[in-house]
Design a protein around this nucleic acid. Structure first.
Lengths: 339, 339
DNA sequence: ACCCGCATTGTAAGCGCTTACATTTGATTC
DNA sequence: GAATCAAATGTAAGCGCTTACAATGCGGGT
């Protein structure tokens, strides 16, 4: 059993194989440039010593990391899981590694994480939503770090982005809800500050009301963190008024799950006593009872496209193309026409 | 607006502040060693240039990264989210950064990820479960990388580990199930190969049967990946026999959620027609209808303790103490006594 | 036999930082 | 005011790798 020693270096391998460090390096990075006989000798030395290249040193010398960084608001629930999974799979096939950090929806932590990923040499960055301090974009531009925004689409954004229209999607759902006869509507929104997706979704509900001749100011709005418990507590407030709303539209599926749990605890039947809707169509939506009416977002597709585009930006030093994806309505049992 | 330039270096800062690079470095790493006047001058130069230290270079020179790596089997569901969150919070307060990778439950990918994290200079590693190739442990030992195993506890393990007894926990649940009058039991297990937690849990059910005078071989076992869809499909098989089991015990809450969804699709009432149990007690358990009977695991506590212990191993070069945590039963509506 | 040119390998200069050690500064003491 | 010494700062040697450039070896044309 080998004793604890510090890791073997390129030098060790070179000595063991009786070649120069340059040759070893070439064996590892462009094997076709070294003749078969030498290569096998080097590779067996690598094997024998259990050599793993030192990433830091390699980065310094080569000034490329083949690493992409992504900063997502949270890992606590599955909102980003599926899209990120697809993102990383696509990166992997292209020879890149994904580094993920989470910001807990806090701008200052996000900034810290961005700097940390850049310091680690990320060749490119994926960020969620476009709303953030201009200073950060300057910082990224100054260092020429290709950056792509996902989970949101804004045609007028200066940043390339790939995603869907949160506002329009939510308005489409609202139109449907109203068409079913609902008019007393409550919204449980995620925290709006610094979150363009949450803002867009809430705006979508208001636009839907206006579009259908209802007063947007009549909308009951409760703001709460994107957590099940948040949704549960917000539900209490949402139904607290004298006339109970007939439908609670939630900013995402997680909030909706919390709201539905609370409804059950209060012995309110969904959808007989009150309807509930979500947003995202994560797996959760289908296991709720009743299944949740929600907005389906093509997460996997978004992740894949983002990877393709970001790699292109990195490798071709291009500016990045925005792309809008289409969401769709998933009508399920949690939403019922008002009789 | 600054044009794209390559990032400023320590040298640039030193020149701008009119000091040596050593002084700048000290300002950043041990500010008390440099006099106030110089320090402010240096820091404003840092500010002005938007300097961020190059992590790779720093690692190479200092041979420490203050980075801890963790490799978890999946990020797709919330099984590890809560524990990992606590782990990272605790690390953060101690000045460490967490790097997470996922292995998709595949040993060869896990190995690759381990090497990648080591190459990136991780000061320590957190792994899930102890069952893996001995060669990996050798590799880690040779490089003297402190490694802690979590989510499992085995007193005889050579690796320090912190977790709970998967087998005993599941047996406790099984005892309870049998005490409620159930004897036709089906198990929906995660993939057993290479997964000591899944093996332990299944063994716990068998031991429970034996312990109560039932034949362990009568247990219906369906093996499937830890996914909702897996649970749903496995449910079909679990109830396919001529005599339907009265209870389906699932390897975790995610499988249970899938099973319950499928039961509803088949118009089987849980728990009137069939009972279901889970394992983990993630948030999911409480939002299911009916709420899920499961084994509660102190995930946050486990994450925190793991962080504390691993940092201790790194900083004091100690061997690491194992710790066993207690799980507990959460009896909820999905399990009903047989009348 | 000689020279040319290509394929293969070696040499060595950094990449941006930390830190041991050397030097300078300045406060304190007599 | 000179001597002493601790505090502050500077100098420079790497850390482990990649890669431009140099050197070497080899086959083939003359």
């Amino acid at each position: 059993m080998p004793r604890a020693r510090s890791a073997p270096t390129l030098d060790d391998v070179a000595r063991q194989a009786g070649v120069s460090t340059a040759t070893v390096s070439r064996c590892l990075n462009s094997p076709e440039r070294v003749v078969e006989r030498t290569r096998t000798r080097v590779l067996s030395a690598v094997e024998e010593l259990g050599y793993t290249p030192n990433f830091g040193a390699r980065v310094m010398a080569a000034r490329r990391t083949f690493t992409i960084g992504a900063i997502i608001p949270t890992m606590e629930n599955a909102i980003f899981a599926r899209g990120l999974q697809a993102f990383q799979e696509e990166l992997h096939t292209r020879g890149y590694t994904l580094l993920v950090a989470s910001s807990a929806y806090r701008p200052e932590i996000e900034e810290e994480q961005i700097k940390s990923l850049v310091a680690r040499g990320a060749d490119g960055l994926l960020l969620i939503g476009y709303a953030r301090d201009a200073g950060i974009y300057d910082y990224l531009r100054q260092r020429a770090i290709p950056t792509l925004v996902a989970w949101a689409f804004a045609p007028d954004s200066t940043q390339p982005c790939i995603g869907f229209d949160n506002r329009a999607s939510m308005q489409a759902l609202t139109d449907k809800v109203i068409a079913m006869g609902h008019s007393r509507i409550a919204a449980i929104s995620g925290i709006l500050e610094g979150n363009d997706r949450a803002q867009g979704r809430l705006q979508g509900i208001k636009d839907g009301l206006r579009h259908n001749g209802l007063d947007p100011d009549s909308l009951i709005v409760v703001e709460t963190p994107y957590e099940i418990e948040g949704g549960a507590q917000a539900f209490d407030q949402a139904i607290a008024g004298k006339e109970r709303p007939t439908v609670v539209m939630c900013g995402n599926d997680v909030l909706a799950a919390g709201a539905m749990r609370r409804a059950r605890e209060l012995n309110l039947s969904v959808p007989d006593d009150i309807s509930v809707t979500g947003f995202d169509d994560i797996e959760l939506a289908r296991i709720l009872t009743p299944p949740l009416t929600t907005v389906h977002v093509p997460h996997r597709k978004m992740g894949r496209r983002a990877a393709v585009e970001l790699v292109k930006m990195v490798e071709q030093d291009s500016v990045g193309l925005s792309e809008q994806l289409q969401s769709s309505l998933k009508l399920r049992g949690s939403l019922k026409p008002l009789t």
